[in-house]
Design a protein around this nucleic acid. Structure first.
Lengths: 231, 231
DNA sequence: CTCCCAGTATGAGAAATCTCATACTTACCT
DNA sequence: AGGTAAGTATGAGATTTCTCATACTGGGAG
């Protein structure tokens, strides 16, 4: 994680996603811009996040650590989107691990300083409600529709979503669980992609050779990673 | 829909679910208690709901009306839970149809009177954020886990959830879509339940003969209809 | 260094589920 | 009365996906 002291870039991100409209006070000064390099951990459960983050560029994934120590993929986020809002608002809420898939830029408000103010800020609270409500609606629609698709279609979308620089290297066990299919079947379909020349296997990861073919397969699948939907 | 003027019953419901803790002002006087009979429509899209409701007893289902006029099942609610909170908080949000599965009791705050006050009430806003956040977390976990189960297991849970007085009479087309399976396959499994004596077919609906068998099948399936989780 | 575990890998047969074709019924419109 | 659309119903064959069995690998624990 690196603090980026570039006010122009910060202002540009703020304007791009309407960050300042999410609050009733002036956050332009208060917010810091951070860069989380690809694969770095943005929030590590069970620690509580130190800042309220707002993802303005990059893709992230969210993990849960199960009681048995296993790690389960839960969800994906793309800009614009809050990170750590539940931990701020709901002291009871479990916290999850968030990892950068590719380089991620985030605007950050330190909770230690702004917690009380945020909890009293009705503009902010209403925004979070809207954000959560829409996310929920979309997730439900997405999930119930996606059940209808075949694994090769859903996997195609998943690979496009999680690959970084055309390198796909998710753990098969986690992916099988996330996509709700057996490990065996996942490997069949992956092998099939390789046979068709869509992927190339290199050691323990895969290179995406034909993103176009994957995109065509995934065409109808509405992956809809979570975003805040700028106003 | 019937207004129930029974202050004792109202107080009892308020206490049972901690309704008064969801707001920073005194709602005990302000709230009305309504009874929505089984199968009646609680909110009809695209109308905006007139009241902010809080379900305290009964089960409801939520529908979306698609562009083509078809109706899609979206979600289910059990007490305690808000109804109409998104329409209150997010003017952009589409509104959905909510129908009572069985007799439903709701506490109601007329939006015309309380809208502004609610939008300024940080206690209420924080509660809704928590409610939406938890609902989201659970939905995601539930959906991704449930993909792994076979239709007979998921259908068993679905029947238990939607049956009223052991009568199951959902439209097969809607259910197939909701559960993400083909109409054909749904009918196969239903026919199988009948053959096993778990269901009995009577005209165009089914009687649940062996809820115990359904419950056993559904045992591991975490249906988790949405609730607010009392504090 | 060896043991053991998690993750990876592959085969074979079984099951769950899908697609397509075809009817019948009911409601509603004209 | 005829026409149409949606929902219901059932069969046959094709695909998708699962379960189980079996091995190989790399890395951490002792």
């Amino acid at each position: 994680m690196r603090l980026i002291q570039n006010d122009d870039l910060k202002r540009q991100f703020i304007a791009e996603w309407g960050y300042d409209h999410q609050f009733s006070f002036d956050v332009v000064q208060a917010a810091q811009l951070y860069l989380f390099p690809a694969k770095s951990i943005i929030v590590r459960a069970p620690d509580r996040p130190r800042d309220l983050l707002y993802l303005v560029k990059g893709k992230t994934k969210l993990y849960d650590t199960l009681a048995n120590g296993k790690v389960a993929l839960i969800d994906f986020f793309t800009p614009p989107c809050f990170i750590g809002e539940m931990e701020l608002l709901d002291p009871e809420s479990p916290s999850f691990t968030v990892q950068a898939i590719e380089d991620c830029w985030c605007l950050a408000l330190p909770m230690a300083t702004y917690r009380e103010q945020l909890l009293r800020d009705t503009t902010f609270l209403r925004r979070v409600c809207q954000y959560l409500g829409r996310k929920n609606t979309r997730n439900i629609k997405t999930f119930s529709q996606n059940q209808a698709f075949t694994l090769s279609q859903r996997l195609a979308g998943f690979i496009l979503l999680t690959a970084n620089n055309d390198v796909y290297e998710e753990k098969h066990t986690q992916v099988a669980q996330y996509l709700g299919v057996s490990y065996r079947h996942l490997l069949y379909v992956l092998a099939d992609f390789v046979k068709q020349g869509v992927l190339e296997k290199v050691g323990h990861h895969y290179l995406v050779q034909r993103p176009d073919v994957l995109a065509r397969l995934a065409r109808e699948v509405d992956w809809a990673p979570t975003t805040a939907e700028r106003e």
